[in-house]
Design a protein around this nucleic acid. Structure first.
Length: 491
RNA sequence: GGCCCCAUCGUCUAAUGGUUAGGACCUCGCCCUUUCACGGCGGUAAUAAGGGUUCGAAUCCCCUUGGGGUCACCA
């Protein structure tokens, strides 16, 4: 009856948007499940009504799907263990909490927030650990029943026995011991009837037959509470794996303060999902070899929890940029074409009609020079519009006194070409240079400046070829008119 | 502060008692290229400190230091 199929879950709380740390946690859960032919479940932990953010669930799901992390069960993909929203499972938690009360593993607490605050202050003043003093555990059965009948505001607390050793077995960290003295009588059911994370999480993980709990290290210190719960319910414990944290450059826990943390932000900046997934997978895990470029399905083959690191990892954007460029370069031109068209449709060039043939040439020419799709527009705007101005420092260096004259001559020669191909421009330029007894460079550099407005980019003959004869000539003529002589600039 | 976790180049990491401590990003230099990239070659750069154990320690143990997490009717 016990099925040993691996089941993992990602259990975010809908309090905002998907964090890159959350993405990695989700990814590891996904990869581990897939690697073991198991199931990956999405469960929404919406038990905090105060922090609930409208639209967060939809955003979480769409972001996960964007990244390619499709879940086998979850909201919208209802499985055997639905519902997957904790707010829809309230009665389940209540029943379980009441069961614990019957077993004396939990108890009702009627203490006011004021009393709790005073208690905490007093303990802190005395240098003690802030901890509930089990005051309400001393209430008689009659007292409790009367208060309940009177509808007094109450919570249900975990009844932790002091002096016990609690062992957390973690695949990543090994055996971690805690003393139950440091475990507070955690609230399980809040006064609004909602469960806390600890109860809901344990109950659902058990009911949903989760075999591996893979989550961030910030949960390690509350795992003893969960262990206690499993033991109180007499349930089999899942395998725990606490992932190292993702860090800011200053090594604190990755936070909004020091840069973007929302997956959405990276998406909006133009990062490819392939790059983000690849990058985040390597933050805390390696296969052990030197391979660093991965696609999601390759990760599915190789991922293992045993090779997850213990130490926190700094989220270093430079490496992400490199991976983005790599992934973009590895794509087929036809795929980049789709991305480029999307980019164009959201740009100032949206009303221009470029043919696929034209765009594919641009893609081929720029492929090795871009990091983001948007770079096609930003690094080579000259493929989309005639330069209106010319880079001054390049002009100062490359636009010599004789440049206008040389360019005029080149225009004349280009004019005579019929259906020229790239090599024709090149040959023509070289012939012209020879005739005029100047270096090729004396023509090449001004030509580049004239047609592109800048000093960097693909081979100038590629540019001219892509732009075409008429457009190139038009641009050269325009440059002759507009670029001031270097001698004028210098003065 | 209590408890817990962690510690190899600036960053991500490899090395599971025996390596000139390897790779990648970044950076620098050279080559390729009359541009810029890509690519190729090469350089700088690390075992936090101190004790043990061992023939031998980045690796095992202890202590120190440093960093982080957590101590809610938030997850």
């Amino acid at each position: 009856m016990i099925s040993n199929i691996v089941r993992t879950r990602f259990a975010p709380s809908p309090t905002g948007y998907l964090h890159v740390g959350g993405l990695r946690t989700a990814l590891y859960n996904y990869l581990f499940a897939k690697r073991n032919n198991g199931k990956f479940i999405l469960r929404i932990e919406d038990t905090d009504r105060a922090r609930y953010v409208e639209g967060a669930i939809e955003n979480l799901i769409s972001t996960l799907k964007w990244a390619g992390l499709y879940f086998d069960e979850g909201p919208g993909v209802e499985g055997e263990f639905a519902p997957y929203l904790q707010s829809e499972r309230l009665n389940i938690y209540k029943e379980h909490a009441e069961h614990l009360i019957k077993e004396k593993k939990a108890y009702y607490c009627f203490c006011s927030q004021e009393r709790l605050n005073e208690l905490r202050e007093k303990q802190q003043k005395e240098g003690l650990q802030p901890k509930y003093d089990k005051h309400c555990l001393g209430l008689s059965k009659d007292e409790v029943e009367k208060k309940l009948a009177d509808n007094e505001r109450h919570v249900i607390r975990l009844n932790v026995q002091p002096g016990e050793n609690i062992i957390v077995d973690d695949v990543i960290r090994g055996r971690v011991e805690f003393n139950s003295d440091v475990v507070d009588d955690q609230v399980l059911i809040k006064s609004d009837g909602y469960p806390t994370y600890h109860l809901a999480n344990v109950v659902d993980d058990h009911l949903m037959k989760i075999t591996h709990v893979i989550r961030g290290e910030e949960w390690l210190s509350s795992t003893p509470k969960h262990i206690l719960l499993y033991d109180f319910f007499d349930w089999e414990k899942p395998v725990f794996a606490h992932l190292p944290l993702l860090l800011n450059p200053d090594r604190s826990k990755l936070s909004k303060r020091q840069g973007d943390v929302a997956v959405e932000d990276y998406r909006a900046k133009g990062y490819l999902k392939e790059a983000l997934i690849n990058f985040v997978a390597l933050l805390g895990w390696t296969a052990g070899d030197d391979k660093e470029f991965y696609y999601l399905n390759e990760l599915k083959e190789k991922f293992s929890l045993e090779r997850v690191n213990k130490a926190g990892a700094v989220f270093n954007v430079e490496k992400l940029n490199w991976l983005n460029a790599e992934h973009l370069r590895k794509k087929e031109n036809s795929e980049i074409l789709i991305l480029l068209k999307e980019e164009l449709s959201g740009s100032k060039y949206k009303n221009q009609n470029y043919t696929d043939e034209y765009l594919l040439k641009v893609i081929e020419a720029m492929k090795e020079r871009v990091i983001f799709v948007k770079d096609y527009l930003e690094k080579s705007p000259y493929f989309f519009e005639t330069p209106g101005e010319y880079d001054e420092s390049v002009a100062a260096k490359r636009w010599k006194d004789n440049s206008p004259e040389l360019m005029k001559k080149l225009v004349e020669k280009f004019q005579k070409l019929e259906n020229p191909v790239k090599e024709d421009y090149e040959n023509t330029l070289k012939e012209t240079a020879a005739e005029l007894e100047v270096e090729n460079g004396d023509l090449i550099h001004p030509l580049r400046l004239a047609v592109s407005g800048i000093g960097a980019g693909p081979g100038v003959f590629d540019i001219v070829d892509i732009l075409g004869k008429e457009e190139s000539i038009k641009r050269i003529n325009k440059a002759i008119e507009l670029i001031p002589q270097s001698s004028t600039i210098k003065s």
